[in-house]
Write a protein that binds this DNA or RNA. Structure first.
Lengths: 194, 194
DNA sequence: CTCCTTTAGTTGACACAACAACTATAGCGC
DNA sequence: GCGCTATAGTTGTTGTGTCAACTAAAGGAG
């Protein structure tokens, strides 16, 4: 994994003569401008980072492929339907749904249009706010989620959970929670109600 | 995080009357067809899975945004250039580069075309195999990677590493390695040489 | 040497996501 | 109640990614 490691995270050093200054882990001899001198990664940090990057790169494809094949949904479509299936009345406002799925409003609007064409969701004007649109999961949509869920869970096991010891699963939960304090400080994806 | 949790991973149970069979964690009363009865996730598993999913969803956007803003690259373009910067002669075959970046050959071909238009890489016929194409990082491309690396490392710290204790970083490395045995059994992304 | 299969890569058509521009309603100040 | 600004969504355009078809060279069987 040396190539990937160095390439992504350290400045390129394959040709050391060409890049003296930014290559090293240590600061240059002279007084460094602090803002521009990054703290390079330690070997342990580098390994963790690169592997996380690989997971982040590969996992979406695995999920997408399984869902597409077994149920005809993209992962994003599945998440959209799943969020609705959990909501009271199986209904959510566009904005609320976009937050929970980490989608922009335009993206969600397009996806909802396509799902509506397939009869899985419906749009309805919000009675209390003329600007808002409610999205409602239809019975067909409900059935589709229920049908797709088992395969999705199986994939989660095969691709991730079953590769880990129980202690590692717990640790992963902790670690991911820590990371999310940076990536999602408001907890929009993890804590919809708040 | 209850909504997200249940929605993605458990079958929808907001309206219990509507979905008796597939909702529960326990097997139905009758003799279950083993292939179709998934093992639902325990609370700990579910929490870990959903948070991992959120990280996987959010991290690419963060990386992309920072690189795009500070250096004008997508994360994939950066990875492509970085791989080349590490390679002997700053040169790689299309196929080798595609493996290291987890790209399909068509995708890489398009990206290389665009990078070549910007003068960052060059195509060259492989002298030993008439079918192959070598991609070479130009001096401009080299300079671009060197310029982009510090910001990328800083983002890696801010978004992930600095949120974790040293022990957690080490644990993350272990866990991600375990997951990659499932996602990437051949180690193509993590072990280019082999 | 010739045919056939496999490998390497490019190209073009289509699908989807990001961004920007636009419409329409709500809510507020006066 | 008039006008302003902010909010909620939709629509169109543009850039990437995926898939399928295609070209071309390498390697093997006869």
């Amino acid at each position: 994994m040396t190539d990937l490691a160095d390439a992504v995270v350290a400045p390129p050093a394959a040709d050391p003569s060409a890049v003296a200054a930014p290559a090293g882990t240590a600061a240059p001899a002279g007084p460094a401008r602090r803002d521009e001198e990054p703290r390079w990664l330690s070997p342990v940090e580098r390994a963790a980072w690169l592997r996380l990057l690989a997971v982040v790169e590969l996992l979406p494809g695995v999920l997408d492929t399984q869902l597409r094949k077994d149920s005809g949904f993209s992962h994003f479509e599945y998440q959209t339907l799943a969020m609705l299936s959990e909501a009271p009345e199986r209904t959510l406002r566009m904005t609320a749904l976009a937050e929970r799925t980490n989608a922009t409003l335009p993206r969600l609007s397009h996806v909802v249009t396509r799902l509506a064409e397939r009869g899985l969701v419906e749009r309805a004007a919000c009675p209390t706010d003329g600007r808002a649109t409610n999205v409602i999961l239809t019975d067909d949509g409900w059935a589709a989620v229920v049908g797709a869920a088992p395969g999705h869970v199986r994939t989660a096991r095969e691709a991730v959970l079953d590769a880990l010891s129980p202690a590692q699963v717990a640790a992963l939960g902790e670690i991911a929670a820590q990371i999310l304090t940076r990536l999602d400080p408001e907890g929009r994806m993890t804590d919809p109600g708040a």
